[in-house]
Design a protein around this nucleic acid. Structure first.
Lengths: 241, 241
DNA sequence: GAGTGGTCTAGACCACAGC
DNA sequence: CTGTGGTCTAGACCACTCG
């Protein structure tokens, strides 16, 4: 039942197997996993061991558990996007998903910086998306998104005219790519002329820069996003516990 | 063994009792708690139930568990401060605790803003500490700290000449106050004349403002801290998963 | 009522620390 | 060797959902 050499706890082995299946898309986002007893029988372990693996996955937000219903593959619902992956909040505490207006969308060959951020070789095809986003009806974020084209085939052609606001949900639905983790680096910067114009600010106004790399379930980088945000009426919320 | 009315799971009741004891200082930071079996006997529950409560506390960083040794009250070690409570990182990824130089220290009556942040009545005595902090040998952070004087008796007189760099550790050691949680609000702002001078920057240079309220184990606010940081060579790191 | 996850227990054994 | 936390199992019962 257990491994002599590797010596990894059983429940972690089960967890690894489950993550592997999730990463390869054995179950689609939103779909139900087999029951604890079902998985236990399949893996030849006790139900308690499967439970511990699933609890771990739930703690990492990879699955969602509902008493009486089952265990489901986590989705990027608006709720989750809002509270987990989007940290800009109005100063009065209100949260709302921003609207967006696309400024540009094209494919290109990755420059050195883009390649570095996405773990690609320079020259690899990438998709570049530029847009502004609205908070509380006002233009507040100037954003550049870069994707590895290989993992998003026909992205430019396939993207609907009104670009979906919640792109992570779109990645899931259309490409089966789950954003599981992201790292954000924040700086205070001065607005460039282009940004100042797009955001109706004076040149060199202070902006909050969010440099974010998003990672898929398999640990590979799937998106680089550079957001420059006006924080006149909003702030970035970080809760530490 | 269980409660009919409230209907809170046993392990959560145990957890509540343990938090209560931690908050009242029944065990000092760094001290060992009784063993799982000891606590189980005391609370008349099974060892597994105590374990689940302790696992929860460990997940919240309130206790630290060491196989073979025991369960200990968490401390604000330099390590923990660095990785958990201090998010400014050099652009090359290096982490180091900043040095500090005190600019001012006095008691005063809380103004409206301070009172609001700390959940006090305006006019309540507070301690005000103003300092600059150094990152990589360079002055990089201009910081104001406000404390409710009632919970830090004789703070001004007692503070050593060389103000401890890790004040959270100092709060624990001297006042038995554990900072368990903090909320940070980040904005990009323009440096004031005073800040620009202290940080060797041009006036109105963009700074990252970190507005942080720290909470004790009992949930009350124990510190308001306003940091204004030069992000020329550093960034604020936020990991989302 | 049948099926799911959530709680609680009890006991066995393993891994690690320290005397 | 003893005592600690960590893993694994097995079974009972509870709470919730749905048909």
């Amino acid at each position: 039942m257990d491994a002599a050499p590797g010596f990894r706890p059983l429940y972690l082995q089960v967890k690894d197997l489950l993550i592997q299946r999730l990463a390869t898309g054995a179950w689609r986002p939103g779909e139900a996993l087999p029951s604890e007893f079902g998985l236990a029988a399949e893996f030849n372990v006790s139900q308690g061991t499967v439970r511990k693996a699933l609890d771990d996955l739930a703690a990492q937000n990879l699955v969602v558990r509902h008493q009486g219903k089952g265990t489901f593959v986590a989705r990027h619902t608006p709720q989750r996007a809002l509270f987990h992956f989007f940290h800009l909040v109005a100063d009065d505490g209100a949260r709302a998903l921003p609207g967006s207006r696309v400024l540009g969308l094209k494919t290109a060959k990755a420059d050195r910086i883009e390649a570095e951020h996405l773990g690609l070789k320079p020259g690899t095809p990438v998709v570049r998306l530029k847009r502004v986003r609205l908070l509380g009806g006002e233009v507040a974020i100037f954003e550049r998104i870069v994707l590895p084209a290989a993992r998003f085939p026909n992205f430019v052609q396939r993207l609907p005219a009104d670009v979906p606001n919640e792109v992570y949900r779109y990645y899931e639905d259309v490409y089966g790519i789950t954003v599981a983790r992201a790292v954000e680096k924040l700086k205070a910067v001065a607005a460039t002329a282009e940004e100042a114009k797009a955001l109706n600010l004076t040149r060199a106004a202070p902006l909050l820069e969010i440099d974010r790399i998003a990672y898929a379930l398999d640990g590979s980088a799937v998106e680089w996003r550079l957001s420059r945000c006006s924080t006149a009426h909003h702030h970035y919320l970080s809760e530490i516990e």
